[in-house]
């Protein structure tokens, strides 16, 4: 129901402005914080872009390991691990942790060295 630009397009307009026009005008310390701000906006954009589908995929993964659809939450997975209900050697658990973490990085920082390594 909302007009163009979309929220993603609005965010992109702001970070391009910061990147192309503002950053170079500022003293080092402020330019550093502007770069951080740009990175934050890019995270938000990626989350808007893929957040919903990643959350849904994660839910399926959690249902697969925790069983119940209602119980299939990150909170409960954390609880089961801390209460020792899933053994640390459980192969499925390890795969689940790897998969979910990769999904998080795809939004938080797809350029991270270890993430890129694990994609190969």
């Amino acid at each position: 129901m909302f007009d163009r630009p979309t929220s993603k397009e609005l965010i992109e307009a702001v970070y391009l402005f910061l990147e192309e026009r503002i950053k170079k005008e500022l003293p080092k310390h402020l330019a550093f914080n502007v770069q951080i701000s740009i990175n934050i906006l890019k995270i938000v954009m990626r989350e808007l872009d893929k957040g919903e589908s990643l959350t849904e995929e994660t839910k399926q993964i959690l249902i697969n390991i925790l069983g119940d659809s209602k119980k299939a939450t990150i909170k409960n997975l954390a609880k089961e691990i801390s209460q020792g209900k899933i053994d640390l050697n459980n192969k499925k658990l390890k795969e689940v942790l790897i998969e979910i973490t990769k999904k998080k990085l795809s939004v938080d920082n797809p350029n991270y060295s270890t993430y890129k390594k694990l994609l190969k």
């Binding site: 909170k75 997975l77 954390a78 691990i81 801390s82 020792g84 640390l88 658990l93 942790l97 979910i100």
Partner: peptide, 11 residues
């Protein structure tokens, strides 16, 4: 809650 952190603490 962070499952990976829980795992690492246990480990």
């Amino acid at each position: 809650p962070l499952p990976v952190f829980e795992y690492t603490f246990k480990w």
